[in-house]
């Protein structure tokens, strides 16, 4: 507690800087449950009618629950693929005698540095050719691939911190290499797995460009695309509705952050060694 009181100028400074953000979030919430007269900042009426879209849907748009389900599938399958591949590839790169390891790692990192927008036309053409355009699977594959470089590097960094002796002990104790990885090494990198999982899920949940371009049709729509189509629609312009859907969209993100904020820090705490 002594440390906290010493830090009060820093906390006050940061608080001051954060005020605009906070005000925006508060208004985002307030506007979803109230009406304000035109030109006024203060609401004058409490109402739940902006949340009607949950039960009644929105005229001319897809079912919000179907879209939410799509988003959840998109984010969680992407996360699963990223976790599976990164946890194994990171181990291989950290421990096994992979030929050209340095070039591989450098190449992977290069892919990470590539802005995905520059690839989008090529990916679009490829997906159309193999028949995965306008499918969830197609966009999941693309998103996972683009998330993998970071995932592999992070997991490799975590594996590098696990002592060799633990693996040697496991092997001498009679366990196969796979058993050693699964029962002895994987639990040591669990913080990395959790952090990477949350990170990938949030990245998938908030992804907009890829689904917009590669899977725009209404039956595979995700929330970000749905939200964009709402504001692009000039016919029924309803700002409060837009804010309500936006609020609905960020609730899972906020919940995840509240529960996992400490674990997320691990990504940076785990350290990445080349």
């Amino acid at each position: 507690m002594v440390g906290h009181s010493r830090n009060w100028p820093v906390i006050a400074g940061l608080g001051l800087i954060s005020i605009p953000l906070l005000v925006m979030y508060i208004y985002l919430f307030v506007d979803t449950v109230t009406d304000s007269p035109a030109g006024s900042v203060l609401p004058n009426r409490f109402t739940l009618e902006h949340w009607r879209f949950l039960t009644e849907g929105i005229e001319g748009k897809g079912n919000i629950w179907k879209v939410t389900l799509n988003t959840a599938i998109f984010a969680s399958v992407t996360t699963t693929v990223v976790l599976l591949v990164s946890s194994m590839a990171g181990y291989a790169l950290s421990r096994l005698n992979v030929p050209m390891r340095r070039y591989f790692l450098a190449g992977v990192l290069m892919l990470h540095a590539f802005p995905s927008v520059t690839l989008i036309i090529a990916i679009f053409l490829i997906l159309q050719m193999v028949g995965l355009y306008n499918t969830l699977i197609g966009v999941i594959l693309v998103k996972s691939t683009l998330e993998l470089p970071l995932g592999i590097w992070i997991m490799k960094g975590f594996y590098d911190t696990v002592p060799w002796e633990i693996e040697m002990a496991g092997i001498v104790d009679g366990a196969s290499r796979f058993r050693v990885w699964r029962s002895l090494v994987l639990p040591q990198v669990q913080p990395g797995i959790v952090a990477l999982g949350v990170f990938s899920f949030l990245a998938g949940w908030s992804e907009y460009v890829l689904p917009q371009v590669l899977a725009p049709s209404s039956n595979v729509q995700v929330l970000s695309v749905y939200l964009a189509s709402l504001i692009a629609d000039d016919q029924h312009f309803d700002f409060n509705l837009f804010k309500s859907v936006g609020m609905f969209y960020i609730i899972p993100v906020i919940i995840l952050y509240i529960f996992f904020q400490n674990k997320l820090m691990n990504i940076y705490g785990g350290g990445i060694k080349g």
Binding site: P163, E165, I166, I171, V172, D173, A175, P187
Partner: peptide, 26 residues
């Protein structure tokens, strides 16, 4: 794995996520 040797390491190399019982039983 099949030589049946027992090994004690300088760093002990205990499995940190397991209890003592689980370590010995591994």
């Amino acid at each position: 794995q099949q030589r049946n040797v027992g090994m004690v390491f300088q760093s002990y190399a205990l499995y940190p996520h397991m209890t003592v019982f689980q370590n010995i039983a591994f």
